[in-house]
């Protein structure tokens, strides 16, 4: 059997985009070379729909494109000043909810949150910082876990569950108290079977899950986003793991 014919299309910002039945707007867009900003989505995993950066206007209604299946004759607006303004506000809220100290963060230049902020022309956090106390867990011999930078995308949760088969991570708490937790009686990463070679150790879009002693080894100028925008990097055939 060959690949199913893709005779059905939607339009995104006036461009015809073909799709297969069951394909989301996001995946159809990515396949057609149309960029929709996203942070919690990674084509290697099931969609999650939590960051809301990929919200598009479908026939006049706002929908999360990474979870919304494409349907014939959908008219999608994506790259509009209104939507990009909302996206910028969402990124700004992520910045003030966590403690993102880009100047000293070893993920700078490789960080998708930072790259999304640049892409959306974010010039300041705009909102008042929450300055929430967030935990740091250095108990694992090879991994440093810094929840100050966690944006609750659940990519590590999904990777540990779906690829590594370990269920090391989960999300707990409600509202502003929502946080990433570690599946161990002690709550410490060092008391799990997590390994630096696990998929979950390499999917964090920010600097939350870090391989110890590797920081800053890539010179400025050779980092993921030094010469490419996030819209280019996330359009590459296979999104790279984020060291």
């Amino acid at each position: 059997m060959g690949a199913p014919a893709m005779s059905k299309t939607i339009t995104i910002d006036g461009k015809n985009v073909p799709f297969q039945d069951g394909q989301t707007i996001m995946n159809a867009a990515l396949a057609a070379g149309v960029y929709i900003p996203h942070l919690c989505h990674n084509p290697q995993f099931e969609p999650h729909g939590s960051c809301k950066l990929c919200v598009v206007s479908v026939n006049g209604r706002n929908m999360t494109s990474c979870t919304m299946p494409a349907a014939e004759d959908m008219v999608v607006a994506n790259n509009t000043p209104e939507l990009n303004s909302d996206r910028k506000a969402l990124v700004q809220m992520l910045f003030v909810e966590g403690n993102h100290i880009c100047p000293a963060c070893e993920a700078s230049g490789n960080c998708q949150l930072q790259a999304a902020a640049y892409y959306l022309n974010m010039l300041s956090p705009h909102y008042t910082h929450f300055y929430q106390p967030r935990a740091v867990d250095a108990s694992h011999p090879d991994i440093f876990l810094d929840l100050n930078r966690c944006i609750l995308c659940e990519l590590c949760v999904r990777a540990s569950r779906e690829v590594d088969g370990k269920n090391v991570f989960g999300i707990s708490g409600r509202g502003i108290g929502t946080r990433l937790v570690v599946n161990a009686a002690s709550g410490r990463l060092g008391d799990t079977n997590f390994a630096a070679t696990d998929k979950a150790a390499h999917v964090c879009p920010t600097g939350t899950i870090l391989i110890k002693r590797q920081g800053y080894k890539i010179p400025i100028g050779q980092r993921t986003f030094d010469h490419k925008k996030i819209s280019e990097v996330q359009m590459e055939p296979m999104e790279p793991d984020h060291e």
């Binding site: 100290i101 000293a104 070893e106 110890k212 590797q214 920081g215």
Partner: peptide, 14 residues
């Protein structure tokens, strides 16, 4: 205090 040692040279230069 609490930060990983390899981060500190970049942090303190600020």
């Amino acid at each position: 205090q609490g930060r990983p040692f390899w981060e500190v040279p970049v942090l303190v230069q600020r």
